[in-house]
Nucleic acid binder design. Sequence first.
DNA 1: CCGTTAGTGGACATGATGTCCAGTACGCGC
DNA 2: GCGCGTACTGGACATCATGTCCACTAACGG
Lengths: 196, 196
Amino acid sequence: MGVKQPSTADRRVQRTRASLRQALVELLAERGWDGFSVQDVCDRANVGRSTFYTHFADKEELVAGSFDDLRRALRAGLPAPTRGPRRPLAFTRGLIEHGLEQRRVFLAIVGKRSGLVVQRRFRDLVLGLVREDLAAGPAGVVPREAVVAFVGGALLEVLTWALEAKGTPDAAELDALFHRLVAPVLVEAGVLPGVV
Amino acid sequence: MGVKQPSTADRRVQRTRASLRQALVELLAERGWDGFSVQDVCDRANVGRSTFYTHFADKEELVAGSFDDLRRALRAGLPAPTRGPRRPLAFTRGLIEHGLEQRRVFLAIVGKRSGLVVQRRFRDLVLGLVREDLAAGPAGVVPREAVVAFVGGALLEVLTWALEAKGTPDAAELDALFHRLVAPVLVEAGVLPGVV
DNA sequence: CCGTTAGTGGACATGATGTCCAGTACGCGC
DNA sequence: GCGCGTACTGGACATCATGTCCACTAACGG
């Protein structure tokens, strides 16, 4: 899997990797996943192609790290756990904001010019966040994973819809819209205490 | 786009295309989208590779036809419009049944060994069916397309979850589960007349 | 300041794609 | 049935991206 022979400490290594990641994100936004080759990434990053392969096995392995960063950012941005009833799926606000800000990149991830690996990775990230969030709540009547799939899928597609929409939607409104639709689902699933 | 110079009437053409489609579906189920080349399809179908290109521009164009067939099958399988209130999203039953029957193929379409084109095409198919279905209902408070995205995404992921689950789920139960979760969404969106 | 480690760039093998063409065989209409 | 036309054959070609390898150079860190 990992081909990372170079010792992470070395400055040269850090600069090389940073350049490559940067170039990758730019090219992804500009041309879509299939729109550029490893050679292109190296050209833009000013890195020899053979160097690329001493760090990453392929484009996919390179992109993986960026997703880890994103995941960390989204988890970090959560509001402090206040007292009282926790608002479920609070992370959606950050996700939606981030998505609308970095619209070009997210469109490349989620849109029709994406690549399977990228899309799948993003989907796993979103489903993972939903899963973690719901894990905190009470067990419901419906299988937990079914609810995760239902809610995660809905979130993914609503976000995609918003990103592909013509105008620039408002993050707050969009988040409210999603929560309006998802709340009754959580109640029905018994995950959220609601009108019994 | 279409490279179909051969006249569709000719028997040779029909046999050739049928063989290719058949081989495609088999290979898709066996090896996943990236697991085989145009050459492989031709070998299995007993068709010259150059012949392939006189019919289709690439693997993607070949697979497109199969999806058209699937869409037609799913629309045809709907119950006759009985009097009284129409049950919304009735097509899900057929979709789920079909998916569980043809599990291997569907896993190849929806699973992690799929290809972007295939997944995207299937997603469009499902969202299209949802859109058509909801179009029949009353306009709601929430943007129609948002509801389509929400419901379609949820359906896609629940189906994926079921297909990837270890055991063999029951189609009827699964359909009931989905409808249980989706019903309150339709009510909230104002698409389904419910408890006001 | 020097030894170690990373980066360079070019060569090479591989494998898939898509195009083209001359020859063959098969279906269709007469 | 027969022959005309069209589809299929298969192999050659050009192209392109991948991934590996290696001898050489540069720069980091102790």
